[in-house]
């Protein structure tokens, strides 16, 4: 079989873009570096969501549950043992007396995210359309509620602090690259293509023997593992976290990033995440005055107004997203433009 064109750019395009952002991030001032790292972690989260929502075409509001689980698992397990007794008083002794390093915590986050997604997906992946959206949203609500109120497994409603801030430019870039590579390998695989076929036409896909429930469950699990991993990156970036930071607002923001970029392509996920976080960073800088050709300052509090308005405008003017939901394909696009 001839290799379809564009396989190289499909991976290299997003990867190079992420590396570029990482490299520029290291040259930025300390106060600006956070924006770049945040953008890279957003890429990891949005790519995780894309693996399920983008490829299967089933709307899910639940992927941030796996981010939350990953973030709290990685966070709780990396707080140094000597500080834990003071911070996490009511936690299970097993969790209190052990701590693990940075990389094991990321692997743990990914594993927990994957297992949780598999268990949740087992019954839920039979649903599609709005019912699937609402059921996955219910998962988010339950996860948030339990993480917030059950103080035996975490900090409850208080802030989880003293998490080692190990997500620097290198870890953020590598993390985003891992997410992109996994997503790429999955969507290029036989299984990924079967799922994509079921998105385009469920009836025909079923008629040629695609087990839609199984394919969706696999994608949901991969997506959950990536989301857990991204949650681990996120908590190590922030250093302290509350359950509210991995809840509704993050769900809406990351979904908006995916849709703004283009729901149905990996390139769209990466571009959307970087474009929206870039815009958000720019606007929050602009609230304290920014110099572009001439210096201008946005009135305080208008950042969210502009961010929401620009996102709405993009969606109204370009409903298929900035990338049109297509992968980056140089040869293909040259032919088209000629």
């Amino acid at each position: 079989m001839r290799r379809p064109p564009g396989a190289v750019t499909e991976l290299l395009g997003p990867a190079l873009l992420v590396i570029l952002v990482g490299v520029v991030g290291t040259t930025a001032s300390a106060s600006n570096e956070g924006y770049f790292l945040n953008a890279l972690v957003s890429v990891a989260i949005v790519v995780a969501i894309y693996v399920f929502v983008g490829i299967s075409g089933v709307l899910s509001f639940g992927q941030i549950s796996f981010v939350a689980l990953g973030a709290f698992a990685a966070g709780v397990m990396t707080v140094p043992v000597e500080s834990k007794k003071g911070v996490l008083t009511s936690i299970f002794p097993l969790l209190r007396d052990h701590s693990i390093g940075n990389v094991p915590s990321l692997l743990l986050a990914a594993a927990l995210g994957g297992v949780f997604a598999f268990l949740v997906g087992l019954p839920l992946m039979r649903l599609s359309g709005l019912a699937a959206g609402i059921a996955t949203f219910a998962v988010l609500e339950i996860t948030h509620n339990v993480l917030r109120e059950w103080t035996k497994i975490g900090p409850g409603a208080t802030t989880l602090a003293l998490v080692p801030e190990t997500t620097g430019a290198l870890q953020a870039t590598l993390g985003a690259l891992v997410a992109i590579t996994v997503a790429f390998l999955y969507q290029r695989s036989r299984r990924g293509r079967l799922l994509r076929a079921s998105r385009e036409d469920p009836a025909v896909a079923r008629s040629v023997g695609v087990n839609i429930h199984l394919e969706r469950l696999l994608a949901f699990t991969v997506s959950g593992a990536l989301a857990g991993f991204a949650g681990g990156l996120y908590v190590h970036l922030l250093g302290s976290i509350t359950t509210e930071q991995v809840y509704l607002e993050l769900t809406f923001l990351t979904l908006a990033m995916l849709v703004v970029g283009g729901l149905t392509s990996l390139w769209g996920a990466v571009v959307g995440a970087l474009a929206v976080s870039g815009l958000d960073s720019f606007l929050s800088r602009a609230e304290s005055g920014v110099h572009v050709v001439f210096t201008f300052t946005l009135p305080q509090g208008t950042r969210l107004v502009f961010l929401a308005a620009i996102m709405a405008l993009v969606l109204i003017l370009r409903p298929s997203g900035l990338t049109g939901g297509r992968e980056l394909r140089l040869r293909w696009s040259l032919r088209r433009w000629r």
């Binding site: 809406f252 979904l255 908006a256 849709v259 929401a308 308005a309 996102m311 709405a312 969606l315 109204i316």
Partner: peptide
């Protein structure tokens, strides 16, 4: 998602 954006706006 557009109505999310409008809600936040």
């Amino acid at each position: 998602v557009t109505t999310f954006a409008i809600a936040f706006l």
